[in-house]
Design a protein around this nucleic acid. Structure first.
Lengths: 332, 332
DNA sequence: GAAAATCCGGAACACGTTTTCCTGGACGAA
DNA sequence: TTCGTCCAGGAAAACGTGTTCCGGATTTTC
């Protein structure tokens, strides 16, 4: 039994090597307590020499915190959740927090399972995010929670959301400022809140320049192409189209080009999302609205850190979007 | 001090309520030790009544395991890492393991930081993944590691990779089986291993049906469009084009349509990646090669679980791809 | 020179669980 | 009756850290 299997060194090993007690070593490494500078240094060198990395399980137990937050997403495959995730992870890692990923795949059972697991891990906080802007049922855990993108239905919960209204309005105003006078709107299913909001905001901002009715369809290029035909039949003199997504906008551009209409000379087009594979690959590249989701993720994480630190900020935080002007409205 | 702040109940509370000792409660809840069935049941009811969830920090400390694995990715924004991540998370969550996400953003400093953090958390294992198929430097930690997508340069490490050669060959064989006799290949930068491999595999499988030289460029639609012009000038009689990515293939299709060439009647086209927003939105939808990355993630996770359990499987595991036939080769 | 203040560092405990070892009792066999 | 066996459950150690308290040593003060 003399030669135990090799372990990673613990604080006791460091202490022994430095010739002090474990508690002294702890104080030395954490810059706490009253120690001579020389002692501190000696312990530090010992730790260095042994390649000591403190075991956060012990620390977690002692401190009552786990330095971990859970991210629960209804679909991380979606392109909305991912930037949020990344932003959150970025903000958290700066604070030495780890992020554990839970993809529920929209399955309530899986969600329950994950919640239980996170509670059992005594996670310091939870971020909940979804792929729709509709408010969602709050989750019930004895742990700080912040909602991102999909707010909680409970207005007292902390939620960080995108200013969808402002985003759509900024696109419309951009077109007005370029002198466009007949603006149409093509977007996704009317059942989607974001489609409704964007349509309403567009009409509100365009006012008398808005022509016809918003065209609801699906979030696809195909619908964008088809919508052009519908639109041109009803409003042949339209000179601008704002779209509810970059995919739709790309379809719109493609179809317009096929019909020999120039973008933006004849008709200007705007997208929504700033999804680079769509917005940049489109011909011409799309003027679009960036929801700045990574920043949203960061803000969410920082808000969660505040809640954990004991100073919660309740209610909805609405983050601004950013208009990215490109050739589809400006020309070359 | 009598009314302490309300805590989540511990196993001792459960034990007290059931009238047994903590150790007995532990045994009852874990189906271990020698206990009367009646006692077990009593403890279970007590746990249920108190809504007891075991604290995994304590469990981690006692068991020596943390029931956590780290996923280190050089860019999780890439569309390759994400399905891998999801697959891994899926496989791990079944085993009650949590996955902590570490996005290094290709920064060696951040990678070091994350590694230190994972070691400090005494993670049970680490999955390393990247966005390129080139082998990468192994990481040096006293923890089981499995590499996914980007293998380790050390052949003794465990790596799970995609059969890029087989994938490209399957596309070429598919075209041959359809009677195509002049096959060209358009792909990404020659500096990318995957581009080289796919080109070589295409030539090998097409044999005398291969015309000209592989056209190397970039992974973009723009290059795909441009490549068509280059290609048709050099090889006017080509009747099939295999592409190194769906983006390139989409560009190829677009340009061919503009030139009045029918896909697939005049020229058949195949993509690579089965990236649905590209492959399905393309006109016509693309026959393409699916790398089954989510499955790769699952396999990787399961392999890691094996290593953790003590039965490592060294070397490279090469997973097959799947050919997805669609209209761009089959017609309607 | 003695008392007080200050500085250092160690012993012990807490955190929540699992696990090993041990004890007391019931039971059967000789 | 006595010995051994088996069962049910408890006490304590272990995991690795942080923290509180306390005592000894050194310095300061009168």
């Amino acid at each position: 039994m003399a030669s135990r299997t090799i372990r990673t060194p613990g604080i006791k090993d460091v202490a022994a090597l430095a010739g002090v007690s474990a508690s002294t070593a702890s104080k030395a490494l954490n810059d706490t307590g009253q120690l001579r500078a020389e002692t501190r240094e000696r312990v530090r060198r010992a730790a260095e020499q042994l390649g000591f990395t403190p075991d956060s399980r012990g620390r977690a137990l002692a401190s009552g915190r786990s330095f971990t937050v859970g991210l629960i997403t209804t679909d991380s495959s979606g392109r909305f959740s991912i930037p949020i995730m990344l932003g959150a992870e970025d903000a958290l890692s700066a604070g030495e927090m780890a992020l554990v990923l839970c993809d529920t795949r929209d399955d309530p059972l899986r969600e329950q399972h994950y919640l239980k697991s996170l509670v059992s891990r005594r996670v310091d906080g939870i971020i909940v995010t979804g792929r729709r802007t509709e408010a969602r049922e709050p989750i019930d855990v004895p742990i700080p929670v912040v909602y991102a993108f999909s707010p909680s239905t409970d207005p007292d919960d902390t939620s960080v959301i995108v200013d969808d209204h402002g985003g759509a309005a900024s696109a419309a105003r951009h077109l007005l400022s370029l002198g466009r006078e007949q603006i149409a709107h093509v977007t996704g299913p009317e059942s989607h809140l974001s489609a409704q909001i964007r349509a309403a905001a567009t009409m509100g901002a365009a006012r008398e320049a808005f022509v016809g009715q918003p065209l609801y369809g699906e979030w696809s290029e195909r619908w964008g192409r088809h919508a052009v035909d519908v639109l041109l039949r009803a409003q042949p003199t339209v000179d601008a189209i704002t779209c509810g997504s970059d995919q739709i906008a790309r379809g719109v551009c493609d179809r317009l080009r096929e019909l020999g209409r120039s973008v933006p000379d004849d008709i200007a087009v705007t997208g929504y999302d700033n999804w680079s594979v769509m917005a940049l690959a489109s011909r011409p590249p799309l003027t679009t609205v960036d929801m700045e989701l990574e920043e949203l993720g960061r803000r969410t994480a920082n808000l969660l850190l505040d809640v954990i630190a004991g100073s919660p900020r309740r209610g909805q935080l609405i983050l601004p979007t950013r208009l990215i002007p490109r050739e589809s409205t400006l020309g070359t």
